[in-house]
Simulated scan of single mutants.
Amino acid sequence: MPTNASSPASTSGSSGWMKIGKDIFAGTCGGISVTLVGHPFDTLKIRLQSQPMDKPIYSGVVDCARKTVQWEGLGGLYKGVTSPLAGQMFFRASLFGAFGQSKRWLGTNSDGSARPLKPLDFYKAGAMTGFVAAFTEGPIDFYKSQIQVQIIRAKQVPDYKPPYTTVSECVRATVRESGFRGPFQGLSATLLRNTPANAIYLGNFEMLKQMYCKRYNCTQAEIPGAVVTAAAGLGGCTYWLAIFPVDCIKSAMQTDTVLRSQRKYTDFLTTAKLLWAEGGIKRFYKGFTPCIIRAAPANGVMLLTVEKVTAMLG
């Protein structure tokens, strides 16, 4: 995380832009690391979330992993990975740039002087960050998810020919159909997921670091990497525990057809009602196992990378 969160400084002039630049660069490095580590688990999550309840393609997470490798090779686990990799700079720029700026803003008095952040401030900063980042994460997730579920449609419909097999083809198809709004399919669910989830995720991460520093009388720069990784992993687990049903709704909306006239999941409430009708509360926890397995190592690697890169930049 950028700077010592307990005593942020206000940004002005070139020094302010330098801090934002460091936040963005460190966040991008962290984003690339989390994508490489976590994308296979994300593929399994999306496929389990999106398969039909009445005629499932996969019986569980192990079966999904086995069939993915059997049908598509190891590369199948990385379906759609070009979208998050290509979008990391934009997404992490919004995520860590917004988080760094939010903490500095909350830690600045009206006269421009700095003040220590209160515990609640970390959660406020996380919520603001989640809202802002949804506008970059939404399109990235949308294109990624569209590619990840093509295999499900192929197994459901005989002689199915996917309308697109690459992210670039999907981009062209959505722009033709919906123009600028195309990649924001499911944005309402992304906003409802990201805002509270990042408040919990980033807030808990910062508070755990604060607690460690207080107990061992050290600065955040002196926190061992293993502790940072554990705090980030726990923060990632609380993220998903808090909002997984909303994520399931988001996945349904984002994997729906890009043709607006043929969409089944037209808005957040309609999607929630239809998913409930499919399987009750269990329907909202499809894909939870690979998601929670991924949460600790992927988020631990990401935030540890961010911390170390930020420290290296000074």
Rank of each mutant, 00 (worst) to 15 (best):
F25A: 14
P56R: 00
V34Y: 11
I24E: 05
K45I: 00
T43Y: 04
Q49W: 01
M53D: 07
S15W: 13
M18H: 13
T43K: 02
S50C: 08
L36H: 10
S33I: 15
S15R: 15
P40L: 09
I32A: 13
W17A: 12
D54T: 10
I20P: 01
T28G: 09
T28V: 11
W17L: 15
D54I: 06
V34Q: 14
M18S: 07
K45P: 00
Q51F: 10
P52R: 05
M18E: 11
S59I: 08
S15K: 13
Q51E: 08
T43M: 06
Q51V: 04
G38D: 01
K45Y: 00
G27Y: 02
G21C: 08
W17S: 12
L48K: 03
L44S: 04
P52F: 01
T35E: 12
I57W: 03
A26R: 07
S50H: 11
P56N: 00
V34S: 14
P56H: 03
D54F: 08
G27T: 07
Y58E: 02
P52Q: 04
A26L: 07
V37C: 08
P56S: 04
Q51C: 06
G31H: 04
L36G: 10
T28A: 14
G16S: 09
Q51I: 03
F25V: 15
I24Y: 08
K45R: 02
V37Q: 05
Y58F: 15
G16T: 08
K19M: 07
Q51H: 06
G30E: 06
K19V: 13
R47Y: 07
G30V: 10
